[in-house]
């Protein structure tokens, strides 16, 4: 069983979550816990770094959908970065690029949080 790991680090007012391994129905609850924790800590500026994410299933995508509404209501956002082409393909197929800001580079996403909101 290839496992799934979440590593979180905070830089100023932006929280970065690094995902590693396989995100599917079995591991999705781990990510849910991580999001839940950020929300209770009032950390709504979230960057999800997918550099080491090997696979994401529909259940994994569902986790983002479950929390994004709350986070956006609190003037925050989930931005996704550093996706491998394979993972990007899954997001793209479902039309996620319409719903989420996806960046090549983590720093780019962090900077976006500091730009004045339109």
């Amino acid at each position: 069983m290839i496992d799934f790991k979440i590593h979180q680090r905070d830089s100023e007012d932006v929280s970065v979550i690094e995902l590693k391994g396989y995100l599917d129905a079995h591991t999705a609850p781990d990510l849910e816990t991580a999001f839940q924790k950020l929300i209770t800590e009032n950390k709504f500026n979230i960057v999800v770094n997918c550099r080491d994410l090997s696979y994401i299933s529909s259940a994994g995508l569902g986790v983002f959908m479950a929390y994004v509404e709350d986070i956006r209501k609190n003037k925050g956002d989930i931005k996704l970065t550093n996706m491998t082409p394979k993972v990007y393909n899954v997001f793209d197929l479902l039309g996620f690029p319409i719903l989420y800001e996806i960046y090549k580079d983590e720093q780019e996403a962090v900077v976006r949080f500091h730009e004045p909101k339109k």
């Binding site: 959908m65 479902l94 039309g95 996620f96 319409i98 719903l99």
Partner: peptide, 16 residues
Amino acid sequence: TGIGLGLTGRDQFEKA
């Protein structure tokens, strides 16, 4: 192009 059902409202869906 297209987006999954149940992800977003009518406007965005129809546009996509």
